[in-house]
Design a protein around this nucleic acid. Structure first.
Lengths: 227, 227
DNA sequence: GAGTAATGTTACAGATTTGTTAAATATTTA
DNA sequence: TAAATATTTAACAAATCTGTAACATTACTC
């Protein structure tokens, strides 16, 4: 799965270099040198990451960053701001606006690459695909159906949500608090032990005969989707 | 939690001044005026930031920077290069090598401080690695699993925490009190001898057949992860 | 509005982990 | 070498954590 990186940059040589190098690394790259345009394209295309120049002819990078971070639908897209080396003030301002990272030009490409990878890894859970599988377990988000070994399984809404969340990063251990936050969300006036009960219910549904149990308990830590 | 800054500088007056000022700001400072030594200490101690002089008697700063940036395990540690020359060439060379920032001597301390703060803020979140290894021992914090020689090892919660802490700085010796403080944390109404028991339990788990024992006892001092 | 489904809470049994103690070993010192 | 000091480890009781059934409450469906 190659990530899609959107570059907002009006300096041609830099844009060319970035595009060339990123594509060589296997990323899908698109770009714009116009702020207004960039804003609308980002909202429409939802890239996995944005490289954003500080100074743009029409709309400053920091403004764009602000707009994006205020929009529910795209606020999770990580942004790396690019600025000409110099003003300390700008750096702080950029980071305070919500940019995930900040690099000053000229920068080393390997370093940029490292930061991109690190950011993508951190944000991965937010990138949802229509279908997710783990071993013989499959979840189709379009039809909201779950299958184990090709056999459809019926889950209650909460169990579905729980599985939907866990399968985003199989093997990762989540604490009860994290699960409450992400699966229950809004009203966290719920006992953390309630998670246990729903885990039990989810287990009873997905652990069908002749297939390995799929939820791991990590004592004093939480649960993960794994066998 | 104060950051640890490592200074590589052979000019005594500058080193003294830097150390004094940085410590006054609450940073933990260590240093070396020997390039080779600095390189190995940095790899071992993994400071949060490195101040690196351009010219050193044995090994140039830029070489050190290159070495560090090529090493997966320390490439994320930010480096600020310090140089007497103001030449643009050197700056570019320094930055291309991967240094995060660059200052020419004589520099204003407040400015240096600002840069340090900015860098630490920017890089800190990226250096909490999900994986740590020491020799043939590996700990994956995402799945909370521990491996020795590729074989999974199961640890109790406290043993896991203990190992998780020890592996952050292998070879470093921690007193029982330090371990209690960092691993037990809140309720320190625990006998310091209890640490011994958990060390024993950890040993019994990770010291599998055909692999070197991995925990060193330092009599009347404490323990370290080391063989 | 009755019936059904889903959710959250609680209680309790069972399992695992933890801290303490004491005896056995090991190491240093005099 | 004996005494003093420090560490290892087994054993056990206490504390903590988890799984699940049962039940009350709330939300949905027809």
């Amino acid at each position: 799965m190659s990530a899609h990186i959107f570059v907002v940059e009006d300096e041609k040589p830099i844009l060319t270099l970035l595009t060339y190098n990123l594509e060589k690394e296997g990323y899908k790259v698109s770009s714009s040198s116009n702020g207004e345009e960039a804003l609308s394209v980002i909202k429409e295309k939802k890239p996995d990451l944005v490289l954003l120049d500080w100074m743009l002819p029409d709309l400053s990078g920091i403004k764009i960053c602000q707009y994006l971070k205020q929009d529910e639908k795209v606020k999770n897209i990580p942004i790396i701001m690019l600025t000409a080396k110099g003003e300390e003030e700008d750096k702080v301002k950029g980071l305070n606006t919500g940019a995930e990272d900040y690099m000053t030009k000229p920068f080393s490409f390997p370093e940029l690459l490292a930061r991109i990878k690190s950011l993508l890894k951190r944000v991965k859970p937010n990138i949802v695909s229509e279908e997710a599988t783990y071993l013989d377990l499959k979840i189709d988000r379009e039809s909201m159906k779950v299958f184990r070994k090709e056999k459809e399984i019926s889950l209650g809404p909460k169990e579905y949500k729980l599985l939907d969340f866990l399968i985003k990063q199989p093997k990762r251990v989540y604490s009860r608090e994290q699960l409450l936050e992400h699966v229950w969300g809004d009203d966290i006036n719920v006992e953390s032990r309630t998670v246990d009960v729903h885990i039990t219910r989810l287990r009873q549904s997905i652990n069908i005969e002749g297939a390995k149990p799929l939820i791991r308990t990590v004592r004093s830590a939480g649960y993960s989707l794994e066998n």
